[in-house]
Amino acid sequence: MVRINGEWQDLAGKSLAAFLAESAYDLGRIAVERNGEIIPKSRYAETVLEEGDAVEIVGFVGGG
């Protein structure tokens, strides 16, 4: 199981890119943190979610 934004999901073994492709996230507006590290977009495909990973998808909203 992998924890995504606090919710446990059955995603171990799946790539980050595959998970995001099936999700509703807008890839142009997010940053992904896994286990205390930002995973840059260029590494989504090669990053495989592992059992026990804690992931936070940070979605940015406009305004500044």
Partner: peptide, 29 residues
């Protein structure tokens, strides 16, 4: 101001300069 620019910067800094500190703002309207 633009959310895509925010995300671009966070991703690029993480990729190029992981040693730098980055402080971002999101949600203040």
């Amino acid at each position: 101001d633009c959310p895509e620019a925010k995300a671009m910067l966070v991703n690029q800094v993480a990729e190029r300069w992981p040693e730098k500190y980055l402080i971002s703002g999101s949600g203040m309207a």
